[in-house]
Simulated scan of single mutants.
Amino acid sequence: MSSRTTMLLGVGAVAAMIGTMSVVALWPHIVSSAATATACSLNAADLGTFVDIPGGGFVMGVGALYPEEGPPRRVFVSPFRLQAHEVTNSQFAAFVAETGYVTEAERNGGSARFQESDTPEVFRSWWSLDPNAIWRRPDGAGSDLAGRELHPVVHVTLNDARAYAAWAGGRIPTEVEWEYAARLGLSDPMDPESGVRAPDGTPRANIWTGLFPVLNTRRDGFAGTAPVGCYPPGRTGAYDMIGNVWEWTDSPFAPSLPRFTIKGGSYLCGENYCRRYRVAARESFEADFGTAHIGFRIVRDVVGTEGLR
């Protein structure tokens, strides 16, 4: 678990920043996604809809904050269709009911969950491998999907996501496609953080608000995952391209690293840590391992999609 935990957390100086402050007293402000509201999600009629992403060119990696995000380069993209929201628990449940699919977390001993800690200044203590954490029990033993049917499915690996996508008549987007669509959706292309908040400070995404990892103010309305579609869509009509959960892409992260790229940041990215709630941001993860903050959405090619689900 140690190498995977390191990749999960990335590189930061949170422990030094926290120092000797009384963090244990603040930790109860962190609550599970089960305690968040669910009234702001999409209408049932809009579930599973796709938006058209036109072909074109863009500069990938603009506004790089971390070294792995650059250098900027010109990329051209063919048109495709993008599911307007992250795949939900209800959608994944339909897939499992029809196919009998068993996820890798169910077969291989669980998944990673963010957890309370008596030593939050030690970043390795933020996560644990929970044998009871699977897609239908997102918070481990005793949890279920009641009230979270429209939350993004989590604890799914890239391999699980590929299996769902094939069943649903689509595929997992490449990193280039994902970033292109996310960039087209920005309300202000000149502001890399315009996907997070409006000029007046109104939240546009579900991220960590407050001091990570000890205080989540829930200024954006949520401490864990949010139902899909709780925030206004981007200019493409797609929701939650930034924040909520990281999203799998089908692109290797680097030639020398046997991991795949995830994009968009999550509800655990804050201003003081993991500022990867930007379209250029990227992180890597193993294809056969899932967590509480990674989900996915699917795409379809423009040609030959008639009659698909």
Rank of each mutant, 00 (worst) to 15 (best):
I294Q: 15
G237Y: 00
N206Y: 02
R204M: 04
N206T: 03
P255C: 06
A198P: 01
G221A: 05
T217S: 07
V228C: 08
G195E: 00
I262F: 08
G224L: 09
M241P: 02
N272V: 11
R219T: 07
R276W: 10
V228F: 09
A281K: 04
D250H: 07
I242M: 02
S256M: 14
D188N: 13
P227Y: 09
G224Y: 13
V228A: 06
D288H: 10
R204L: 06
T291F: 12
W246T: 04
G243W: 09
I294N: 10
G210F: 06
R259L: 14
G304R: 10
N216I: 05
Y231R: 02
D188F: 08
G243D: 09
T202S: 09
D301I: 03
G195Q: 01
P233T: 01
D250W: 07
M241K: 00
V302A: 14
P189H: 06
S194M: 04
Y273Q: 15
Y239S: 03
Y267R: 12
H293F: 14
T291G: 14
S251L: 03
P213V: 13
R297F: 01
F222D: 06
G210W: 11
W248G: 00
L215D: 13
K263D: 05
P199C: 10
A287W: 09
G210C: 06
V214L: 08
D250A: 11
F260W: 15
I294L: 13
G265D: 08
T209S: 06
R219M: 01
G234H: 00
S251V: 08
T225N: 11
E286P: 07
W208R: 06
P192I: 00
A254W: 12
S256V: 15
T225G: 12
R276G: 03
A226V: 01
